[in-house]
Design a protein around this nucleic acid. Structure first.
Length: 490
RNA sequence: GGGGGUGUAGCUCAGUGGUAGAGCAUCUGCCUUUUAAGCAGAGGGCCGAAGGUUCGAGCCCUUCCACCCUCACCA
């Protein structure tokens, strides 16, 4: 992308000349404040009273359109809540101020005072008595009718996207509302919101490659967290019984429409409950959030109609793989699985361990079928180094993942609280690491020490906020729910 | 990394080998309830970059860059 001064030179030069002319005439093109009595939504909501009372009001915003018709003009200003039409009349404003108006450019920020009135066509407008330039704009805005379409510019210069495309702003307002709703739900359930380190001497709690960084004074390598799990469990050990964190996590992975290297999760941990309780909590939370945004438990996502309000499907990982891939993995070791996948034409990467192969089968054969909300439960032991062994089957764990529209939305366990078993699991991961698995969990002695003091039975959950927002706002790409998504450098 | 696509004026887009186009935006003039305001005129381009083919390249070829889609990778 080319973008700079030389490109916009003509229009920019004209605007800088206007700016200098304003300064010479004694006007500050960048004054300090403006008293706003009404924003657009207040104005429209109270219009009838404002009009009949002839009350003088003030409004401010960015000039978005401008129609000069000789001695009278119309324009629209846009504020945080909407657009208001202004009527500027030469014999009301006086010659000087009207001349100033004609010098304004679309994109300038102005404030005005005046009274409410309706035009002949019925548009609620302000009959402007005076206005003031609040900030001069030096670059032309995107085209008023088509808006800004160039995706790269939309992400790189998100402010232009937000100015030009109202529906984009609505998605981010919805995101804020969703996060608020999650918080208020968890608060009302008695959870305590906490903050744990982003810079960690060891990374843990997930299978992912981390970003590394360095602390100069301590002379040590640090990692940006890939998950919060191990710190939140330390808090459970410390006596907090219900904690959660809205956490930015970082994973050094490829980018696609469901992955951004920094993303937001909510993780929560509750003492004295198991994964069945957490499953109920997840469902309750999700349906509650949907009932606020978009406002219904029946939602549409990319052409699918999703019913969050009904019964959610539950199927064990083994049964799901039997059903969709026709493989009974419980009886098969790593070599058998490799053979079976080859026979069935399932693409897998060999010599990465049994867990990865099962995950490959699941991702390829099962996941795309999980459209309605589905809990996949009871994952094999090797896949789940932080989950407690299943009470009925020592080869499985008490774990679930939630899928909607083929997207993984959440991951939860009855948390492993047997410190000696946890040590063995870390050691299994170390073997995977030796075999070249860059995402294997690393052994965390400090965490093991904490576990050895005793952690109560605990249910834990992590879910992706970005993906939840995607689902609830019907966005296909994670970049459309992250204000400033990661891009290659310009 | 593989496959497909896109890149032309500030923005949205036309332009399949023969002088670089439109609408909006900008500048000048007219216009006192317009609303994608209108009318008349003007300026604005290294056609993503570099090579090549050709008498002649925005267009054809090669390489590169950026972005999008898709596959792979990635809980």
């Amino acid at each position: 992308m080319t973008s700079d001064a030389e490109n916009t030179s003509q229009q920019r030069t004209v605007r800088i000349q206007k700016l200098e002319a304003l300064r010479e005439s004694g006007l500050n093109p960048y004054p300090y404040k403006y008293d706003v009595s009404h924003r657009a939504d207040d104005f429209f909501a109270g219009f009838d009273e404002l009009e009949s009372g002839k009350q003088v009001i003030s409004a401010a915003g960015r000039l978005m359109t401008k129609r000069v018709m000789g001695k009278a003009s119309f324009c629209h200003i846009q504020d945080d809540t909407g657009k208001i039409q202004l009527y500027m009349k030469k014999d009301v404003l006086g010659d000087d101020m009207y001349a100033l108006f004609k010098q304004l450019d679309v994109g300038d920020i102005i404030g005005c005072t005046g009274t409410a009135f309706r035009t002949k066509k019925g548009e609620m407008s302000i009959w402007v008595e005076s206005f003031e330039l609040l900030a001069k704009s030096l670059r032309p805005l995107p085209e008023k009718w088509h808006g800004l379409k160039d995706v790269e510019v939309r992400y790189r210069q998100r402010y232009l996207d937000l100015i030009s495309n109202r529906e984009v702003k609505d998605v981010f307002l919805a995101r804020t509302k969703i996060v608020q709703t999650i918080r208020s739900f968890l608060d009302s359930e008695g959870f305590i919101e906490v903050e744990t380190p982003i810079l960690q001497p060891l990374y843990g709690g997930g299978s992912a490659e981390p970003f590394t960084t360095h602390h100069n004074r301590l002379g040590m390598q640090l990692f940006l967290r890939i998950a919060d799990e191990l710190y939140l469990k330390r808090l459970i050990i410390g006596g907090f019984e219900k904690v959660y964190e809205v956490c930015k996590d970082f994973r050094n992975e490829g980018l696609d429409r469901q992955h951004n290297p920094e993303f937001t999760m909510v993780e929560l941990y509750q003492a004295f409950v198991d994964y069945n309780d957490i499953m109920e909590l997840m469902q309750k939370l999700f349906t509650h959030v949907a009932s606020v945004v978009p406002g219904s438990t029946t939602i549409k996502y990319q052409g699918h109609e999703i019913d969050l309000g009904g019964e959610w499907l539950r199927i064990s990982m083994l049964d799901a793989i039997k059903k969709y891939a026709d493989i009974d993995i419980s009886a098969l070791d790593e070599n058998d699985l490799v053979r079976e996948c080859k026979a069935k034409g399932i693409e897998i990467e060999e010599s990465r361990g049994r867990a990865k192969i099962i995950d490959d089968i699941f991702t390829e054969k099962v996941q795309p079928n999980l459209i309605q909300p589905t809990f996949i439960t009871d994952h094999p032991l090797e896949m789940s180094p932080l989950a407690k062994i299943h009470r009925d089957d020592p080869n499985l764990t008490e774990r679930f993942e939630l899928f909607v529209c083929g997207m993984e939305m959440a991951n939860a366990f009855s948390e492993l609280n047997d410190p000696l078993d946890q040590r063995r699991r870390f050691e299994m991961q170390r073997e995977l690491s030796k075999r070249g698995d860059a995402e294997a969990h690393v052994l965390d002695e400090d965490f093991l020490r904490a576990l050895e003091y005793g952690m109560p039975p605990t249910g834990g959950l992590g879910f992706g906020v970005d993906r939840m927002v995607m689902l609830l706002t019907d966005q296909a790409n994670i970049r459309d729910v992250i204000l400033f998504p990661q891009l290659k450098p310009e």
